[in-house]
């Protein structure tokens, strides 16, 4: 029975061996198998092709396939590191690994930096920060005048851009996060520690034992 499932799974595009994924991430083999259950659920919600399309990601996040959101787009793009427009299983597990409570803080800090570096310049530019604050205001009930938004961005930049060159580089970002650790709070998902309870995997457990 295990062999049958094993052969079947290898034919799924983007499927990767849980033991390899577990060796490269903070997850155990059982947790990777549980993540596969979650992955299957999300990746079959609209198009059942074993890949997570952006609409499926939006549906899983917002319960609405058409809800666009700048930050969800950025997360999707970072998960899709092959940049082929879909999230494969290996990409899903490796990316979520950063959000594991036991993942190195340095990985979380770097991931957040890449997330906010909207134009992939290697810096968080003032314009990008302004754009992100506007995007946040757009999705919330918080109404702030343009002047106030400018002041918030200016104040944050004066605190974070210690070299004063009008942009935040990775070193400045690391220093800024070390002074404001709450900034990467959303880079940790406690759920990932209980993933085997939330998504028990019965089929794959017959294949591999921890």
């Amino acid at each position: 029975m295990g062999c049958f499932h094993s052969k079947h799974l290898r034919q799924i595009p983007g499927y990767e061996d849980p033991t390899i994924l577990a060796s490269e991430t903070p997850f155990t083999v059982s947790e990777v198998e549980a993540l596969y259950e979650l992955f299957k659920k999300i990746s079959s919600s609209i198009i059942d092709d074993g890949l997570i399309h952006k609409e499926e990601f939006q549906l899983a996040l917002f319960r609405n396939r058409n809800r666009r959101n700048l930050f969800a787009d950025r997360i999707f793009d970072l998960f899709d590191y092959k940049r082929n427009g879909v999230i494969e299983f290996g990409e899903f597990v490796r990316s979520l690994g950063v959000f594991h409570p036991n993942a190195p803080t340095a990985d979380k800090v770097t991931f957040a930096f890449r997330l906010y570096d909207l134009r992939h310049t290697g810096y968080i530019e003032r314009e990008e920060l302004y754009e992100m604050v506007l995007a946040l205001l757009n999705e919330s009930d918080l109404a702030l005048s343009d002047d106030v938004v400018e002041m918030i961005v200016d104040k944050t930049f004066s605190d974070a851009d210690t070299k004063g060159d009008g942009r935040i580089d990775l070193d400045e970002w690391k220093e800024f996060v070390s002074k404001n650790p709450s900034l990467i709070k959303n880079m940790t998902l406690p759920y990932l520690k209980d993933i085997t309870l939330a998504f028990p995997s019965f089929v794959l457990n017959t294949e591999v034992e921890d």
Binding site: N69, F71, F99, L136, E139, M151, I195
Partner: peptide
Amino acid sequence: ATPVTMNAFELISKSQGLNLSSLFEK
């Protein structure tokens, strides 16, 4: 905090798009 003393990154980290916990809701 008054708006001008808010940290812009603190503000944007509250975005629903960055809250991946909803992926795990059944």
